[in-house]
Design a protein around this nucleic acid. Structure first.
Lengths: 368, 368
DNA sequence: CCCCTATGCGTTAACGTTAACGCTTTTGTA
DNA sequence: TACAAAAGCGTTAACGTTAACGCATAGGGG
């Protein structure tokens, strides 16, 4: 045993690195690196010795140095419009959890839907050397994302997407079948007997909004119901815009007997507008939302809505991105993964017989 | 002009670094570094030249290399129990926003309240070289946090805290005055005439739970109301535990006429339990929560609760942590910053006269 | 017994940046 | 005009890690 200065062992405050270990173990720092990353070409004995010294010294690997030489940071960026939105929160949870399971960390970026914010975040993330970026904030037209796709930087689109052909050809998209979701929502209303159905769309800059609207229109078409232009109101996914939209419907001469809001926030806004006007839900007007955010299930609300597996969506997105990173961006063929939405019948449409549910499902199968 | 190979300018795919710029500018890479970090001792002319070349080449600084040499990463860790909780979400938003304003990024860590998860995250964060860590997940007894405080690693406690003397002596805590909040809640109930008040506490491992409970007890004491042991139920901050607690109250011979739940989630659970039992709120039983999470304001719920500035809380926490990092940990004296909670009167306590509110405030001032 | 191939290590050079130091050249002042 | 000080820049060495390469020694087959 030739270890010098054993007294300095335990509580030394200075950060210990691979060379410190090397000295104590009488080997080169490369050997220490080999031991720590248990590579081959090292004797079991010396390896154990090194590992024990490392433990004694409280060695903590410097991942910054490692990142510099490996050109891999084991870090991902998550670019989201707004963390405060419970939808994104659940998504983020799925993302964070599977990322850590796969050995990656997440840097959080909240763009507030501002595309120049998004750009700045992207620059920062790339400067920090993230291995890939998860976007759940894509605009329909998003030059930032097109540029990244063009360059071949590993990204994944989750929830929202871009229709740009190059992006479609190069990057993964994980979402739900929003067209089907919109279809299910409006079909539900139709099957309950509604013929005048108002729809509050999301922002036309977001793919999910237009897709859900499209699904709703297809349902109307399938069931041969006339589409009135004034029954389609464009919102912005915020509760206030649902509230405003609800008021617009209230002021109409022929007010719709049912409303489909393309997300729950807006549905809650509509709900409030109707309640304030003295209407009863579902007796006077039916209401259906989209997303199934946690609180819509609450007593006193119990919104009928379209559910989706947000956690799973996030998980899949990360798995795909990490696979792409580790298998190499070029050889990795892109996929579009659409999860299936689910009609969640609660109380705001006033009908919840089991038979109906079953029949409805069958009806759907026939259509598609 | 001696720039060689100008054709390689625009679209070269290889990552450009400081030395590439140096070559084109006929200077040393150090000069380029000086130009980019606009340090002194550089001629305006060469600086502009370098900057323009950098722009042309699409230079992006490698912050990993910079971190390695500077021993600063401009990255903070955020250790949270659960992102999905809307309370933490709003907090996180405040944190993320002010962090980016100050030039820092946030690595997100969700511990699920597991202290060994927390430990692993801390190790990872430190390996990744974060400059500091924000904890909103502290247990009352949290060896991880004590260790960090001991070592002098920059951290800040937000929302939750530890009572360990060393931690109190060394690290900042940003929260609200939970004792006052609990006091306000119970006082509100008392002033409405309630004398038998049930309380559902949070986990005894969390400081906020015990403090709010303590505040409630002080209110009872101040107003000379007997404290019944069986009226204090320990919950765990989840909705289910509120639901269970509510059921316990329902089964009592002398059921309390009002309930204070130490967070909104549990209050909503209680709400559901009572509604299912056919009770009306507030006519049959009054209910008050704590936190003012977004959805408690919804039509159909409208929970009376104790509000707090979550966004601001997060913002202050980051400001303090960054100040500590940049001014040096030793010279930085720790502070305890308590924001003031606010009684938010909605409908679940059945009383909302303006006069009462004013009077209530005055009453409070007298007490303290 | 010799050669050939593993095995077990050390040497050296990256990765891209900043910082200490030192050398010219300019500027300012007596 | 001379000389100190400052400005402007280059050289070199870090930061902590991995990887390519090379050199011994041990083991195995002819």
């Amino acid at each position: 045993m030739l270890r010098p200065a054993p007294l300095s062992y335990g509580s030394m405050n200075k950060k210990v690195n691979i060379k410190d270990i090397a000295k104590l173990a009488n080997v080169s720092h490369t050997t220490v690196s080999r031991a720590l990353n248990n590579k081959s070409r090292i004797r079991q004995e010396t390896k154990e010795k090194i590992l024990s010294i490392a433990r004694e010294l409280g060695y903590r690997p410097n991942l910054i140095a490692r990142s510099l030489v490996m050109r891999r940071s084991k870090t991902l960026g998550l670019v989201i419009t707004n963390i405060a939105n419970p939808f994104y929160t659940e998504l983020a949870q799925g993302i964070e959890k599977t990322a850590t399971q796969l050995g990656y960390n997440i840097i959080l970026c909240s763009t507030q839907s501002d595309i120049s914010n998004e750009k700045q975040y992207i620059e920062m993330l790339r400067s920090k050397g993230v291995d890939g970026i998860i976007f759940s904030s894509a605009h329909m037209e998003d030059p930032n994302i097109v540029a990244l796709a063009e360059e071949g930087f590993p990204i994944v689109l989750v929830n929202r997407r871009t229709y740009h052909p190059l992006v479609k050809k190069k990057v993964d998209y994980i979402g739900i079948d929003n067209i089907l979701g919109g279809y299910l929502a409006v079909e539900h209303l139709i099957r309950l007997g509604h013929r005048s159905i108002g729809v509050i769309g999301g922002s036309s800059e977001s793919s999910v909004g237009v897709e859900r609207l499209e699904g709703g229109k297809r349902a109307l078409q399938t069931y041969g119901i006339m589409q009135r232009e004034d029954y389609f109101i464009e919102g912005n996914f915020l509760k206030t815009s649902g509230y405003e939209g609800g008021k617009q419907f209230l002021n109409m001469l022929e007010r719709p007997t049912a409303v489909f809001a393309t997300n729950d926030y807006m549905a809650l806004g509509v709900y409030q507008a109707f309640l304030e006007a003295g209407l009863r839900i579902p007796e006077d007007v039916a209401l259906i939302g989209f997303n199934d955010i946690e609180f819509t299930a609450m007593k006193g609300v119990e919104l009928t809505t379209i559910g989706q597996k947000k956690f799973e969506m996030g998980a899949i997105a990360v798995e795909r991105l990490v696979a792409r990173i580790e298998e190499g961006n070029e050889s990795f063929l892109p996929k579009e993964i659409l999860l299936t939405p689910e009609l969640i019948i609660r109380k705001t449409c006033g009908f919840h017989l089991r038979e109906y549910l079953i029949e409805s499902r069958r009806g759907l199968m026939d259509q598609r």
